[in-house]
Nucleic acid binder design. Structure first.
Lengths: 178, 178
DNA sequence: AATGTATATGCACAAAAGTGCATAATAACA
DNA sequence: TGTTATTATGCACTTTTGTGCATATACATT
């Protein structure tokens, strides 16, 4: 049920529309929590009805009107309460690792391609994170507010690097077997 | 829908009962794919009806009878076909990272405890993997059959190490802020 | 003129995953 | 003698996710 909290956490930064959130999810919180725009709109409706966000429609000419959501005090208190609860171990579900585990009955050539592709994806994400870090987290003007997000971001960066390393190593081993 | 494949992959190693699979999931494939025993039994029923596994009831006195499932040739071919399909990026959902990202409205003391706990969990898992590696993947008797699983296992080991490192670093940073 | 891309929101259905509960026998322990 | 752990399977219900579809306009490209 933490999609609700993921959205609230995003909104602690600044008020956003569903569309903004969907993009934001791809860029930043995306590493910790993925969601499609449909899921986000659906959850926003629930948050609104629980009074955890306040929504304001902003007229735009041409494009559809934006509905900008602001986190309420009640919303912030929900985030705080949630932070006290012990998080569960993430239930990893990785197709690619699973395929590797099933090696014997598996197409090695396809695996090599899958892995190359995966490495590229992680590299793209790493670059994105590095850009975000460079732009938004300049050391000189680091506010207390941003420290947490910076640490989270750095964890994300380290994780991407690790994924690239692990898959590159595995790729070498897989190629040696063809 | 890859729970089906996760089970099939496990069964390529040796025929197993639902109970065995549930334990196996905790120990080995568990890193790539988590599932409860209920989910596994449910999926096994489907696999049986699709003729991807063959099930044989083995009488036991005292305990309930075991139902041992063997992967069929059809099952193996499904695994092969599945291996050709491009895997999707795993959709990470980590409560703890998310909490970190929402730093401002969050209880730092609780966070420190959450992280210590998480580190312990990863350490336990790492030890488990290392034991599995030492016991079942002795270099002298490495068959072609086992190479894939070994690579997967080593990826798992590296990942656990990385998680421990990342969270330990973050823990230090978090403690400095209290 | 037609096609594609970006902006912007959302419903409805389907698939997957998670949780609670139920059963049943043995062995070990307090 | 009651309690808990282990072995072993599974139903029913709920929650969460994912996918397909629908709508509407502006601007740029082909």
């Amino acid at each position: 049920m933490a999609l609700a909290e993921a959205i609230l956490v995003c909104l602690t930064e600044k008020p956003m529309s569903g569309y903004d959130l969907a993009k934001n999810f791809d860029a930043s919180v995306g590493f910790f929590w993925r969601a499609s725009h449909q899921q986000i709109y659906r959850e926003l409706a629930k948050l609104r009805s629980r009074n955890l966000v306040q929504s304001e429609e902003i007229s735009q000419s041409g494009k559809p009107n934006r509905i900008v959501h602001t986190i309420t005090d009640e919303g912030r208190s929900v985030v705080h309460q949630w932070s006290l609860k012990q998080p569960r171990m993430p239930s990893v579900k990785d197709d690619l690792l699973l395929k590797f585990y099933g090696f014997d009955d598996i197409d090695l050539g396809a695996m090599v391609e899958h892995m190359s592709h995966r490495i590229e994806q992680h590299e793209t994400r790493l670059q994105t994170y590095l850009k975000i870090k460079a732009r938004h987290y300049d050391k000189q003007e680091l506010t207390q507010l941003k420290t947490g997000k910076l640490i989270a971001l750095e964890m994300g960066i380290e994780n991407e690097k690790q994924q690239i390393k692990v898959f590159t190593d595995a790729l070498v081993k897989a190629r040696a077997l063809i």
